[in-house]
Simulated scan of single mutants.
Amino acid sequence: MPGRRATERKGDLRERAILDTCETLLADKGFDAMTVGDLAQGAGITRGALYFYFGSKQEVVTALVARTVEHLWERSRATAEAEEPREAITAALDRTVELWNAHGPVLRTAIDRSLTVPEIGALWDRTADLFIAAITAVLERAGIPGGSGADRAPALARALCWMIERTFYHASQESRANLRKAAGTCEHIWLRTAGLTP
C-alpha cells in the first residue's frame, strides 16, 4: 500500500501542475488559443499523460473553475455568518476583489463558458446561489424583510449578486485600480439597499 499512496500523491501533484498551467495560459493566451499541447508542456508531461487526467482542454478548464469557485464558496459562507452588516459588506467586497485580482482570467472564463459548458454552468449557478444566500443573510441582519416580494431581501440579493458579477467582470479587464473602484461602487449600492447609508 505505501507505493499506492505515493502514486496518488504524484498524481495529485501532476493534476495541480496541469491546473496551474491552465490558469497561466488563460491569462497569457485565452481559452481559444490555448492547446492541449500547451497544457502538457507547461505541466512538464506528455500529451498522452495529460489525457490520463483529463479528456480535453475543456475538462481541464472545468476542473480549474471548480478549484477556483471552491475559494468563492468558502468566502461566501464566511460572509453569511460574519460581523455586523456594514462590516460584512465591506469584508465581502474586499475578499471578492482579492479573488478577482488573483484569478480574474479563470473567473471571466467561467462566466464566458457558463452558457455553453453545462458543467461550468452548474458550478457557476451554484456559486451564484451561495452568494445570493450570503447577501440575503446580510440584508436580513440589516433589517430588510425576507419573503418573495420584489423589495424583499432574496430578490434584492439576487439583483446585487448579478450586478456585482458583471461589474467585476468588466472592471477586472481594465486594471486593479478600476476593480477597486468598482468594488467601492458596489459597496455603496449594497449599503444603500440595506438602508445603511445616511
Results as ranks from 00 to 15, higher is better:
residue 4 R to N: 14
residue 6 A to Q: 13
residue 6 A to E: 13
residue 10 K to H: 14
residue 11 G to H: 04
residue 17 A to T: 05
residue 20 D to Q: 04
residue 22 C to E: 01
residue 26 L to F: 02
residue 28 D to H: 07
residue 33 A to D: 04
residue 36 V to A: 07
residue 38 D to Y: 05
residue 39 L to E: 05
residue 39 L to V: 13
residue 41 Q to F: 14
residue 42 G to F: 05
residue 48 G to K: 00
residue 51 Y to F: 13
residue 51 Y to M: 13
residue 54 F to D: 03
residue 56 S to Q: 08
residue 58 Q to N: 12
residue 66 A to C: 08
residue 66 A to T: 06
residue 70 E to I: 11
residue 71 H to T: 09
residue 73 W to A: 06
residue 77 R to I: 08
residue 77 R to D: 10
residue 78 A to H: 01
residue 82 A to T: 11
residue 82 A to V: 10
residue 83 E to Q: 07
residue 84 E to C: 01
residue 85 P to C: 02
residue 89 I to V: 00
residue 91 A to D: 04
residue 94 D to T: 05
residue 95 R to P: 04
residue 107 L to N: 12
residue 107 L to A: 13
residue 107 L to P: 11
residue 111 I to N: 11
residue 118 P to H: 05
residue 119 E to R: 06
residue 119 E to T: 03
residue 119 E to K: 06
residue 122 A to P: 10
residue 133 A to W: 00
residue 133 A to D: 01
residue 138 V to W: 00
residue 140 E to A: 09
residue 143 G to L: 01
residue 143 G to Q: 03
residue 149 G to D: 14
residue 149 G to P: 14
residue 150 A to R: 13
residue 154 P to C: 02
residue 155 A to P: 11
residue 159 A to T: 12
residue 165 E to I: 10
residue 166 R to D: 14
residue 174 E to W: 14
residue 175 S to E: 11
residue 176 R to Y: 14
residue 184 G to Q: 00
residue 188 H to D: 09
residue 189 I to K: 08
residue 189 I to Y: 12
residue 190 W to D: 02
residue 193 T to F: 09
residue 194 A to S: 06
residue 198 P to Y: 04
